[in-house]
Computed example of a mutant assay.
Amino acid sequence: MSGPMDDPGRFEEVYRRTYLPVLRFLRRRLPPAAAEDAAAEVFLAAWRNRHELRGGELPWLYGIARRVAANAVRARDRAHRLDDRIRADHEAGAEPAAEEEVLRRLGAWGVLDRLPEREQEVLLLVAWDGLGVRDAARVMGCGVGAFKVRLHRARRLLEAAVAADEARLPDDRLPVEGRTR
């Protein structure tokens, strides 16, 4: 190799020279669209691990490509197995998860679906996933104070949506404590 791979210009020159051979290598192992995605992963991994280059660039890149392709095949196989299992459960008339059934029965799933996506996520992290405010804030990528504001806003939106639903229900479908005499 004639020149350090740390130099972005040198890396770009290697990329231009080796992209098509790497892509052809991946296309023999993966579907065309997956091969293009995998090629991007190969060069990202190559840039991150450029200090590990020993010997020729193309054999080194092929080694990375082989691992990326193997990961893609494993991921595809897992997705197919999961899809098959979901399809089999559905065809067998499998019952929905208990939580989903409770939400469906309460009509809460429909109310939750009408909330903006971020508010749904805030509520689910706390109420469903059982995270504390600090951990939920970390998941959302915000500070604890900002998360508390989001949670407060989401709870108010949920309360308003539930109240609106109750206003549309006939009196005999309301919970006992909400019925008028």
Rank of each mutant, 00 (worst) to 15 (best):
N49K: 13
L58N: 07
E100V: 14
R66W: 15
R29M: 11
D83Q: 15
A72K: 08
E95V: 15
A65E: 01
R28Y: 00
E13G: 08
R29I: 05
R105K: 06
A94M: 05
R76Y: 08
A45V: 13
R28A: 09
R24N: 08
H51M: 00
A94C: 05
P59I: 01
L26N: 00
V22R: 01
V73H: 03
I86W: 07
V14G: 03
E99T: 11
A34D: 13
R50L: 02
A38C: 04
A75T: 08
R76F: 06
R66C: 11
G93F: 07
W60A: 01
A94Q: 06
A70E: 15
V68E: 10
V102L: 15
L82N: 13
Y62Q: 15
R29P: 05
R28K: 07
R50S: 01
P96V: 12
A69F: 11
G93E: 04
H90G: 01
F25G: 02
G55R: 05
V14N: 04
H51K: 00
A34E: 14
A46K: 02
W60K: 02
G107W: 02
A88H: 12
R27M: 09
E100D: 15
N49R: 15
E13T: 12
L106M: 06
A97P: 07
D83R: 15
